[in-house]
Simulated scan of single mutants.
Amino acid sequence: MAANSDLALAEAVHIGKACGSEIAIVHVIDNTYLRCDPLLFAPDDLRKALREDGEALLKAARERVEAERIPCATRLRDEPAAIGEISTVVEQAAQECGAELLVIGTHGRHGIRRILLGSVAEALVGHSRLPVLLVRR
């Protein structure tokens, strides 16, 4: 799990314990690889590997939450999304779970790096109907 996601999960566990809440963990697979030339690599193999990695991340996160005796649900999202639309997929999953708060890690990028790499966290803050807690690395 990436350091910023790990910190966000720790904060979600802290809040979940304090509020007696269930935690829903969402992992969205970035499907930008679908726009690449299939002659360079096998998209089905890459998709399978990304799904397996996502499932492993979710399993480890769920075990960590459940070790704290907090109810936990996980969701793996693999639908093709337009570039920059991962935040929309996260928001939809949160609504399906009945979430009341989004806790998301952020890299804290600035300047040209933020422009080039985008920010799922920033997009969520801008359009989510739910409160968003950003946990910065």
Results as ranks from 00 to 15, higher is better:
28 V>L: 12
28 V>K: 12
29 I>A: 04
29 I>F: 08
29 I>P: 03
29 I>W: 12
30 D>C: 05
30 D>T: 02
30 D>F: 07
31 N>F: 01
31 N>M: 13
31 N>V: 01
31 N>C: 13
32 T>G: 14
32 T>W: 13
32 T>H: 09
32 T>C: 02
33 Y>P: 10
33 Y>F: 15
33 Y>T: 13
33 Y>R: 10
33 Y>S: 12
33 Y>V: 08
34 L>A: 14
34 L>F: 11
35 R>N: 12
36 C>S: 14
36 C>D: 15
36 C>R: 09
36 C>K: 08
37 D>R: 13
37 D>C: 12
37 D>N: 15
37 D>M: 05
38 P>H: 10
38 P>E: 11
38 P>V: 03
38 P>R: 11
39 L>P: 00
39 L>G: 09
39 L>Y: 12
39 L>W: 03
41 F>M: 13
41 F>H: 06
41 F>Y: 14
41 F>S: 15
42 A>P: 00
42 A>S: 15
43 P>L: 04
43 P>G: 06
43 P>C: 04
43 P>D: 02
43 P>S: 05
44 D>A: 13
44 D>H: 04
44 D>E: 15
46 L>V: 10
47 R>A: 14
47 R>N: 08
47 R>E: 14
47 R>L: 03
48 K>N: 07
48 K>R: 14
48 K>E: 09
49 A>V: 02
50 L>F: 11
50 L>W: 03
51 R>Q: 04
51 R>V: 06
51 R>H: 08
51 R>E: 14
51 R>M: 12
52 E>P: 00
52 E>C: 00
52 E>H: 01
53 D>G: 03
53 D>F: 10
53 D>E: 11
54 G>M: 06
54 G>W: 05
55 E>V: 00
55 E>Y: 01
55 E>G: 01
55 E>K: 03
56 A>N: 14
57 L>P: 00
57 L>K: 12
57 L>C: 07
57 L>N: 07
58 L>N: 12
58 L>G: 09
58 L>F: 08
59 K>W: 00
59 K>T: 05
60 A>C: 09
60 A>K: 13
61 A>L: 04
62 R>Y: 01
62 R>T: 02
63 E>T: 08
64 R>T: 07
64 R>L: 03
64 R>C: 01
65 V>S: 07
65 V>W: 07
65 V>C: 08
65 V>I: 06
65 V>Q: 07
66 E>S: 06
66 E>C: 01
66 E>K: 04
66 E>F: 03
66 E>I: 01
66 E>G: 02
66 E>D: 03
67 A>R: 09
67 A>Q: 13
67 A>C: 06
67 A>I: 04
68 E>W: 02
68 E>G: 05
68 E>S: 12
70 I>E: 09
70 I>G: 05
70 I>Q: 10
71 P>H: 07
71 P>G: 12
72 C>A: 15
72 C>S: 09
73 A>T: 15
73 A>W: 01
73 A>F: 02
73 A>G: 14
74 T>W: 06
74 T>M: 01
74 T>G: 06
75 R>M: 07
75 R>W: 02
75 R>I: 05
75 R>D: 12
76 L>T: 08
76 L>E: 02
76 L>C: 08
76 L>F: 05
76 L>A: 07
77 R>T: 04
78 D>W: 02
80 P>W: 04
80 P>H: 10
80 P>L: 04
80 P>F: 12
81 A>E: 10
81 A>Q: 14
82 A>C: 00
82 A>I: 01
